[in-house]
């Protein structure tokens, strides 16, 4: 048995239910047949992240990657399955005990403007949580905030400013400083650089790499941008419509993708090396998670789909050492 993973998900599901409103209940009472709509945002996902590892979670919009990130960060409660953090089940913890876990897992959001309180000064945004949680004394707060700002590459002189006085890249640095202020071991970054310009993106990516080395951080890096994920991650997990379809070490995945969806996704990534290429896209769009296709969710768009794919859900299993894929094609080979 290897070292215990930092975080482990076992059959984690997250369902969102749209309950019937009063009018719809009346319609049903009068003989209508309206049902509650259930969205399986995350469907029995198994995932583990080892200490010090950077895992990239990739998928298109609506695949459930952000929901999964929020489940891991403790923002959403699970609808099924269990989350283990350092070997302990944290799904049903009392609020007291959950606090310790919550401090250790911090989240960085896509849009720093909507995740920073516009009426608070940077000093309070970063300093409030560590003081409340007793990490630093109130008297030490200013020095502590200065350290945090320096760490993310901002001038401590800015700490009396408000978020709107910063550029997008600087705001994202404030978001990172706020997350780091409670001394977490694990950061969930949800599209943390998607909203930034290319040159600023590179700066923040480098910041993430530096922080990882300095503070021995573990990341779950959620993104739709395969180029960024390839650059940062040790391991990549691909999601499609609520399920994990493939998981592999980064180099193996980019060199030899196994699942047809991964292959299609990699083929579509525009690369600066490819000039005047012919775009050969996969057909169709992501189906609605309210009414997902039967069997393998990808089969209506898959070029290799057989009858079996429409009937039976493929399970995620090891196809090569440390490589997992959920595709029936692997059974035939």
């Amino acid at each position: 048995m290897m070292a215990e993973p930092l975080i482990e998900l076992r059959d984690v599901s997250k369902r969102f239910v749209k309950t019937l409103d009063l009018a719809e209940k009346i319609v049903n009472f009068a003989g209508g047949n309206l049902r509650e709509e259930v969205v399986h945002a995350v469907d029995k996902v198994n995932l583990h992240v080892d200490e010090g590892e950077v895992v990239g979670l990739v998928g298109e919009s609506g695949c459930g990657k952000s929901t999964l990130g929020r489940v891991i960060a403790g923002i959403h409660a699970v609808s099924g399955g269990a989350v283990y953090y350092r070997g302990k089940d944290v799904t049903g913890l009392s609020p007291e005990k959950a606090k310790e876990w919550g401090l250790d897992v911090q989240m960085i959001f896509q849009d720093p403007m909507s995740s920073l309180n516009p009426r608070m000064r940077v000093r309070d945004i970063i300093g409030e949580a560590p003081v409340v949680h007793g990490i630093v004394d109130a008297g030490e707060m200013d020095n502590y905030v200065d350290d945090m700002l320096l760490r993310v590459g901002l001038d401590p002189l800015f700490k009396r400013r408000y978020p709107h006085q910063f550029s997008g890249g600087q705001r994202q640095r404030i978001g990172i400083a706020r997350a780091l202020a409670v001394r977490p071991g694990f950061l969930v970054c949800d599209e943390a650089i998607a909203a930034l310009d290319v040159s600023i993106q590179a700066q923040v990516i480098n910041l993430f790499s530096d922080l990882r080395q300095d503070l021995n951080l573990t990341y779950l890096f959620i993104s739709h941008d395969l180029g960024v994920v390839e650059h940062l991650s040790d391991r990549v997990v691909i999601m499609y419509l609520g399920r994990v379809v493939e998981s592999a070490p980064t180099e193996a995945l980019f060199d030899e993708p196994n699942h047809p969806y991964t292959i299609a996704l990699l083929a579509e990534v525009p690369r600066i090396e490819n000039r005047g290429r012919k775009f050969m896209p996969i057909k169709g769009e992501i189906p609605s998670p309210i009414d997902p296709p039967s069997g393998c969710h990808f089969h209506p768009r898959c070029p290799h789909a057989t009858e079996r794919c429409a009937l039976e859900q493929p399970i995620l299993r090891e196809v090569a050492p440390a490589r997992y894929s959920a595709c029936h094609l692997n059974d035939e080979a």
């Binding site: 290319v198 040159s199 590179a202 480098n206 395969l226 180029g227 390839e230 650059h231 690369r271 090396e273």
Partner: peptide, 24 residues
């Protein structure tokens, strides 16, 4: 040159990206 250097897919994995300092 800096923009091209900032594109992650153009860089070696794990190496720091060639970044343009400052902002627009």
């Amino acid at each position: 040159n800096g923009l091209i250097g900032s594109v992650p897919s153009h860089n070696r994995r794990g190496q720091p990206l060639a970044q343009i300092p400052g902002m627009t």
